[in-house]
Design a protein around this nucleic acid. Structure first.
Lengths: 212, 212
DNA sequence: AGTCATTTATGACTCGCGGTCAGAATCTTG
DNA sequence: CAAGATTCTGACCGCGAGTCATAAATGACT
């Protein structure tokens, strides 16, 4: 191994150490309640050193976010590839979202925040692009499924795929947002799942009878 | 006029001056980019004096929020009282929301933020309660309309009114969130309106054929 | 091994902002 | 006008993100 490569490896290890420390803290206390100092401490490193690896606190969070979104992307991909009926796959994707966010509500908050703040976070160009791409890939899965549904005769044509993708995506997020932080915690899961399933059900039924 | 009353009047005027100044700034620059100092300056007053009238920056914002929500509430009430078909009224309410938020996207951000942060803002007990109540009143209008629709035979029974209220509410918010800060600004209005109308349309159609 | 350039680490410091408070200014009352 | 009550002021505090002068570590070259 050349010197350059060794350097990079060590550098990468440092990054991972920081990310691991940050992850624990963020997911434990929420973004606002974690200081960069505390991340540094947990990683046995100085505050300044953290900034040798990441541009900002936001960027650290975004890295974690990205790896989560990617993880979820794989799940979605596998659902799409099952080749069930389109409406069934959409239902599954929606439910997988719910699980995803029930597991880490903070993540939903941050993604929502990202969506609501056009100026975005304080990220490098690169990170910003990556995050947008990753999120879009997930949204596009729905388009793909709607198209497959049209192919299969499950949905009528012509329908405006983008429209319906946005409506479905909006519904999923809206319902999650509405329930994720309210009511008794142990019941949130079933409440969200039930509401979302019923909502999609009715919507997709309506869609199938569009312009018959 | 007694001395006490005069005092109160002056006090109230000060509050209004502060609120007016704050309003202009907030709606111009967004919550984060306004400092309490700048509000004070605009109101020709010292920073400390601001805190004689409001507990925190959050609370100032919430006051503005509340008056907006109240204003909107009146609109909703008048829509409900028109006694159109339920689905028509729901459509109207949704569209009135859109106008509301197109007019002041920052407001949507804050309300969403409020929804996503259970610890809420740094408010007096009273303000917090008021805000929750005001928002709920608006959501309840939808329940009311669904019930009216059932009465009128427009929707089948039995259906779970809360469920559908939440789904509709979620859909409205989700679609607005998805579009309010993206794409060319001049087209946002029509994009949101179209998507939302179509979404509701299909959903309500599906609802009418529920369990026939 | 010793020198020196380069990379990496440190933590004291700056900066910005929300919020506080001791003391000044102004008003009320007798 | 004096004394007390109220309102106002702006210097100050605390906090946390991000910076930077300085120090330590590394390793290439003699």
């Amino acid at each position: 191994m050349g010197i350059g490569a060794r350097r990079n490896k060590i550098r990468e290890q440092r990054r991972q150490t920081i990310l691991r420390a940050a992850r624990k803290l963020f997911f434990e206390k929420g973004f606002k309640n974690v200081t960069v100092e505390s991340i540094a401490k947990k990683a046995n490193i100085s505050k300044g050193a953290v900034y040798l690896h990441f541009k900002s606190k936001d960027e650290i969070y975004t890295h974690l976010l990205l790896s989560e979104v990617d993880r979820h992307q794989k799940l979605i991909k596998s659902i799409v590839e099952e080749k069930n009926r389109a409406s069934e796959s959409i239902r599954k994707i929606a439910l997988s979202y719910v699980e995803f966010f029930l597991n880490d509500p903070e993540l939903f908050r941050i993604l929502m925040n990202y969506m609501l703040n056009p100026e975005h976070l304080d990220l490098t160009e690169e990170m910003d692009k990556k995050l947008v791409t990753a999120v879009n890939r997930n949204i596009d899965a729905i388009s793909e499924l709607i198209n497959a549904g049209i192919e299969a005769g499950e949905f009528p044509r012509p329908i405006n795929v983008f429209h319906h993708r946005n409506i479905i995506w909006g519904m999923i997020n809206g319902i999650i947002a509405l329930h994720l932080f309210t009511g008794p915690e142990e019941k949130r899961g079933t409440r969200i799942r039930n509401t979302l399933e019923e909502g999609l059900d009715i919507y997709l039924r309506g869609l199938k009878e569009q312009k018959k």
